[in-house]
Design a protein around this nucleic acid. Structure first.
Lengths: 71, 71
DNA sequence: ATGTGACTGATAGTCCGTG
DNA sequence: ACACGGACTATCAGTCACA
């Protein structure tokens, strides 16, 4: 597979922002309407997230989508 | 399907940028290593694109991923 | 040069658990 | 509160013929 650069960038930004907001993965899973285990997988860089899931995560974190792709 | 706001935002940005760069869909499909019909589908908002495909498209357009999510 | 329906194999995303 | 596994269903990636 091996183009996981963007997957890791996304994962790291997501985790960093979630912690800044003092949310648990379960808080986020509820706010984003995604499964708790899925949030865990994404933050560990184990998932190739789709646009709609990206939008849900950004909404759950109350941020713009583009913030999840900052370098 | 419902929440296609982000899908349409992505589609419109992608098409606008591609045209600004004076590329055809076929040019982009070659540069991004994605099928021509797939590029067409994405620009028409018919696909829920994943992170890895997003990275390929941004690379093909020679832009940052976050530019595809500007409002 | 682009849009669309349809198809198949792969994987996104859910849910049950465990430590 | 989180990582990880296994199993499941819904959907995505990738392609074709044709308009």
């Amino acid at each position: 597979m091996e183009n996981n650069e963007i997957i890791l960038l996304f994962a790291m930004n997501m985790k960093r922002i979630r912690l800044e907001k003092k949310m648990s993965q379960e808080d986020l899973s509820f706010a984003a309407d995604l499964h708790r285990n899925y949030i865990s997988d994404v933050e560990c860089g184990r998932r190739n997230v789709s646009l709609q899931a990206i939008a849900k995560i950004a909404a759950g974190l109350e941020i713009e989508v583009s913030e999840l792709f900052n370098k």
